[in-house]
């Protein structure tokens, strides 16, 4: 598995139809909201984060990934009762990181996607925990086992989701 980008094709930016950029985050938010209503364990997943990571790695543009991550995070914050900005900060940072890594790392391979998503998920939850627990002084429990399991499940789901989103890519 090549971790570094070795060909021009691998470092090219991927482009998608415009509605995909709008529809995918909204669909992720809607599904997350609706499915969790009937399956409580679905709340372990973070579909908006997967979308942010995917577009960041596909577009390989840190600025748009940062702004996109912030926007999706704010939307997600708006659905919760916590102050606006918690998920926004976390997802903006993850978007920036994913886009920056996407320039240097081959993100087409499933293994790379699996590992990266696992790490991004852990980092995202860590940032979230720091902000909520230490900045907002609200009760939030950190359980390593739970977080690792959650990150692993999200990574597995992300690999499938990324493969589906690859089909929406504009072929050159």
């Amino acid at each position: 598995m090549a971790l570094m980008a070795s060909t021009r094709r691998e470092v090219d930016e991927r482009s998608f139809p415009l509605f995909i950029y709008i529809l995918a985050p909204l669909l992720a938010l809607g599904l997350q909201s609706l499915v969790t209503l009937h399956f409580l364990r679905f709340g372990m997943l973070d579909l908006p984060l997967m979308v942010v990571v995917y577009f960041a790695m596909a577009r390989r543009n840190p600025v748009t990934a940062t702004l996109g991550g912030a926007a999706v995070g704010i939307l997600q914050d708006a659905l919760t009762h916590q102050p606006i900005g918690v998920f926004g900060i976390a997802k903006a940072f993850i978007g920036y990181l994913a886009a920056s890594l996407g320039v240097r790392i081959d993100t087409e391979a499933h293994g790379t996607r699996l590992v990266l998503t696992f790490l991004f998920m852990l980092l995202h939850n860590g940032i979230d925990w720091v902000l909520v627990r230490h900045l907002l002084a609200q009760p939030l429990v950190w359980n390593w086992l739970h977080e690792l399991l959650r990150a692993a499940i999200n990574a597995l789901i992300a690999v499938v989701l990324f493969a589906l989103l690859d089909r929406a890519r504009i072929r050159e």
Partner: peptide, 22 residues
């Protein structure tokens, strides 16, 4: 440092918004 500055700006803005709410 465009990318890093944009990230910094976004983070600072959101932190300010967070501080206002908190």
């Amino acid at each position: 440092y465009k990318n890093a500055l944009v990230l910094l700006l976004v983070l600072v803005m959101q932190l300010l918004v967070l501080a206002v709410q908190a």
